[in-house]
Amino acid sequence: MICGGLWGSRNAHRLRQAPRRGQMAVLEGSSSAVLLTDAPEPVRLPFSVCLVRCWQEYYPPAETRWTFFSVQADPDAEEGYRAAEFDAPDGREVPLPGTDARVQVLQYVLPPGGALDAHGRAAPPTVKLRLARGERWTVKLLVAHDECPYEQLELTDLYDDEVDWLRAGAPVLVLQRPEQQVRDYKGVLAVLRDGREVARKTIEVNDPLHYDGYHFYLAELGQAHGRPYAVLNVVSDAGLVVVLAGFALLLGGVVWRMWVRLGPRGGANAPEGTP
């Protein structure tokens, strides 16, 4: 294990002038051979890696309802505000805590495009609300944004100028939409050498691509100018086989010494302290 670890160490790679670890950023549908390492100059691999496709998979949301909070500024609170969560069942008008206004969920609707996207991900939901205060009322449609799970609604239609919305204590309705949890990050990688495809694999968390002494891990997925990209962690596997052999020997040795050699009772009749 120590030998393998030393052979795979940063210093051993430096001596061999081989990159030990680096990152590649590849746009979907394009390829790159440039590896960014901690060296001043990027390293060029003798092959290029093409990101054929990348995507995220989601669990279906466990909840479809939004969570409602009435938020009021409070200088005495640790965060500078107080948030009271309250239940807003569909169709029933409920008071907005800390105010004389009322809220009613009219409908949970989905934006144009349907309920699920191509990868089974639930589309961001939209909620239609009726807000009332005394005889006045208004209907609001809240469409969730991908980036932020929270939507904020100030009750200006109901209060006009009665409330200074910057004044401490002015209430705000905050809604948190159900969050979808990522099931997996996936990408299809193809390795190109001299213009020919020499390897291809769908990689995901816990399942990297291995080629020519390097493992390629999916580190990050994102969008740049509307085009998906992936950041790949590239790690040398130098010494790994030796380390794994060391693991097997260590485990085998411990099992042999602890469980097999002395029997199940561990040499109960042996002198006290016999290991």
Partner: peptide
């Protein structure tokens, strides 16, 4: 002593399996 001897291979297996998993998930 008997209990520690019984547990050590399991503790070792947990540690080494974690190391193998770490390589597959994080690269090291």
């Amino acid at each position: 002593r008997t209990l520690v001897r019984a547990a050590l291979p399991l503790l070792t297996a947990g540690l080494l399996l974690g190391a193998v998993w770490g390589k597959l998930a994080w690269g090291d």
